[in-house]
């Protein structure tokens, strides 16, 4: 039952209708982060649709999406998988103490040349 609410929530927040998917796999074919992902874009769509969301919540894959929108632009059915990944990820990091990236940790990642853009983007993606 909880999953049902979670699914509805994710669909509402993302604005994605996973039923539009025709299972061609073009999203996964085009995803630059494929190698880093345990669950791939087409699986996000299928698993949200079938309510099998639990494994996604715990997966590193949430933080591997680059928001590059290749899957969004190339999907022949207008499913927009990246928006679904974003919504699932938000449902995790919005929980208390669930920030992926903490301010104190950033220092260890920095090098001399890293642009501010990388840091603010990472914060926006990984933390609430």
């Amino acid at each position: 039952m909880e999953n049902k609410y979670l699914k509805d929530d994710i669909i509402r927040s993302s604005g994605v209708n996973p039923k539009k998917c025709m299972k061609c796999g073009k999203c996964t074919a085009t995803c630059p982060s494929f190698d880093e992902m345990e669950y791939h874009p087409h699986q996000f769509v299928y698993m949200v649709e079938s309510g099998d969301i639990e494994p996604l919540l715990e997966s590193e894959s949430l933080y591997k999406c680059l928001s590059c929108f290749a899957c969004v632009d190339r999907c022949p059915r207008g499913v927009e998988p990246a928006k679904l990944v974003e919504a699932v990820k938000l449902s995790v990091i919005r929980q208390k103490n669930s920030n992926r990236l903490k301010a104190d940790d950033v220092v260890k990642y920095l090098d001399e040349d890293i642009p501010q853009q990388a840091i603010v983007s990472a914060f926006r993606k990984y933390s609430k």
Binding site: S33, L66, C68, I119
Partner: peptide, 15 residues
């Protein structure tokens, strides 16, 4: 028009 890796450079430079 492919992605350079973007902000993932921060925590997963290999990617």
């Amino acid at each position: 028009n492919e992605c350079c890796g973007g902000y993932i450079a921060l925590e997963d430079p290999k990617a």
